[in-house]
Write a protein that binds this DNA or RNA. Structure first.
Length: 254
DNA sequence: ATGGTCGTGTGACGA
């Protein structure tokens, strides 16, 4: 079973890219983030054999799960704050397994309520995943975590000092997610540094391979045991008019 | 040191 996460930076602008990826790569499950609009083109995916479920809002955020198998909704918002209207969380059951797709808040600038919102959101996520662990529900969570876990996940750690993606408080909370017994799928399969999932549009970041690793899959123990591989597919970042992110792919047994 | 680039929706904001 092949599962993929990809921040597409607008589904309207990237529909052809997403369809091309589905046709060329044929994943069982594709989790996408940053849909950036109310409309979601379910029919376009239906036409090529994929079911989909989306959580959207106007202009910002938005996540969707596109799947060969039927999808059952569990949660379309992260529990813990009924006042939070941002479209950043989608939890489903699919083929008897639990899949969670997140677009974790960016958090910049750090001296604003944006950063406190990010940290509070991460705390709510820890609570949700702790509950799933307590209930012994196997799950895979993928998405744009907006966290650079370690120095070696960026080109120049010094230049990221003070940024919400690299802030010690963001990294501590990411570490607490791992401490629930979760596996950073890419990190355990590839210990090299400087393996990126995002390159800024600006300042020739892609051409200079000046990126960051912020898109992740975390696996509960039962699914970590079933992992065959985890890779980053750099190709879509090189396509014409690309997203600034590229897909991360996990292959599970059976 | 500064500004550089995209996307949304059509002005300013988010990343």
């Amino acid at each position: 079973m092949k599962i993929v996460s990809w921040n597409v930076n607008s589904i309207k602008a990237r529909l052809d890219h997403v369809k091309r990826f589905l046709e060329e790569s044929g994943p069982d499950v594709l989790m996408i983030q940053e849909l950036k609009g109310l409309e979601f083109p379910s029919d376009a995916f239906k036409n090529i054999g994929y079911e989909s479920r989306a959580v959207t809002q106007k202009a910002y955020n938005g996540v969707a799960i596109i799947s060969k198998q039927p999808v059952t909704l569990i949660h379309d918002k992260l529990p813990g704050d009924d006042a939070d209207e941002q479209a950043r969380y989608l939890e489903v059951e699919l083929d008897g397994l639990r899949f969670i797709n997140i677009y974790l808040p960016n958090g910049n600038p750090v001296d604003t309520e944006k950063f406190t919102y990010k940290l509070a959101w991460m705390e709510r996520l820890i609570t949700r995943l702790k509950d799933l662990r307590s209930d012994n529900i196997p799950f895979a969570i993928g998405g744009d975590f907006n966290v650079i876990p370690e120095d070696k996940d960026c080109h120049d750690p010094e230049s990221w000092k003070g940024d919400a993606l690299f802030h010690i408080e963001s990294r501590r909370k990411f570490r607490r997610l791992l401490n629930l017994g979760l596996t950073d799928a890419f990190r355990v399969k590839d210990t090299r540094g400087e393996q990126y999932t995002f390159w800024d549009y600006q300042a020739g970041a892609w051409q200079n391979d000046n990126g960051i690793r912020i898109d992740h899959f975390l696996l509960s123990p039962a699914l970590a045991d079933k992992m065959k591989s985890c890779t980053i597919d750099r190709n879509p970042r090189g396509w014409e008019k690309p997203s600034d992110h590229t897909p991360i792919i996990v292959e599970l047994e059976s």
